[in-house]
Computed example of a mutant assay.
Amino acid sequence: MPAVSFQNVSKTYQSARGTFKALDGVSFDIEPGEFFGLLGPNGAGKTTLISILAGLTQPSGGKVTVNGHDVQADYPSARRQLGVVPQELVFDPFFNVRETLRLQSGYFGIRHNDAWIDELLEGLGLADKAQANMRQLSGGMKRRVLVAQALVHRPPVIVLDEPTAGVDVELRQTLWQFVSRLNREGSTVLLTTHYLEEAEALCGRIAMLKQGRVVALEKTSELLRRASSNVLRFKTDQSLPDDLLVHARVTGRVVQLPAHSALEVEQLLARVRESGVVAEDIEIRKPDLEDVFIDVMGGAAQAAQAEARS
């Protein structure tokens, strides 16, 4: 039995401008014990899908189950199976950290939960903040408390919706060490993130969404193995000519260009020199998940355009 199952899930919104389809027949399963990544650009439907999984949004069609419990027909049982860390910082300003976690335990009917709360506080670097009022915490510390709240009832399925957005490196390392430990102990983890290096390092399998549809669903290793090219990387202070710029990924001084062969590397470098661009720190690297993501999203866009013309 899958830990999480999405079966032909759709979600349509009505507005003054007409109908907007946020999800369009999304189907995939997440197996028990998986560390699964859900990726996509803004507006792809990731948060809508998670809101449906958490029972916060009703689907227009399809079915979602958590360990066999339907999130609509059997919401109380399904909700007990889930620990959801939302994107937004939501907290009660009237309680300290320990009181917040005790209160969250009570929502699930759990008494005398202090031993596990202590473990959460220690594992997430919150032990010295246990008596601090939630209002006194920094944004990063509040996010740690959100994670602890999601885990306080020991859910078998953990959902992390952009958990490290806007937080420091220390929190990321602390969070991933603790969540990876829970995953090794048998917890299923569903992660959405825009930090693709995190997804590449953590997730054994990945689904990519674009405009409400699944456009890729494979093991992370297979996605990387099937990448069609290596990458020529260099630094420059100058602008690339248009014929190179259209294929380049530029981040500040760093330019990255796909190169399918050694001959193409030579041709690209020759074109760079001809254009008068001075390249520094030249290297050739294997493609990473960000390269794959860009390729998949570009291919999905071309397929959508072709479908619209036909």
Rank of each mutant, 00 (worst) to 15 (best):
T174Y: 06
T174W: 06
K210D: 06
K142S: 10
A216K: 12
Q211G: 10
P156E: 02
E197M: 00
A227I: 10
A248L: 08
D237H: 11
W116L: 13
R233T: 14
E170Q: 12
L124Q: 02
V145F: 01
L182I: 09
A201F: 12
S221A: 12
A199G: 06
G125W: 07
G140P: 05
D118P: 12
L217D: 07
S180Y: 08
L126Y: 05
E218K: 14
A148S: 14
I117K: 07
R181I: 07
L191Q: 00
S239F: 09
F178H: 13
R144H: 03
D114F: 04
L223Y: 02
L202P: 07
V167N: 10
H112C: 13
L120P: 11
D168P: 03
R213M: 10
Q211C: 14
W116T: 12
L240H: 00
Q238R: 01
D161G: 08
N183K: 15
R143S: 09
G204R: 03
E200M: 12
E162Y: 04
K142A: 09
G204L: 03
L232T: 12
Y195W: 06
S180E: 10
M208V: 11
V145D: 02
A227W: 09
R144D: 01
L151C: 13
G212W: 08
K142M: 06
T164Y: 02
T236G: 05
L217C: 00
A201D: 11
K235S: 04
S138A: 00
A165K: 14
F234G: 07
E170T: 08
L137T: 04
T164H: 05
T193W: 02
L121T: 10
I117P: 01
L175F: 00
Q211K: 09
N133G: 07
K129C: 12
V250L: 08
M141A: 03
L202M: 13
W176S: 10
D118E: 15
L245N: 07
E185H: 03
A130K: 11
G125F: 10
Q173E: 12
L146Y: 03
N133H: 07
V167W: 09
V250E: 11
L160I: 01
T188S: 09
E222Q: 15
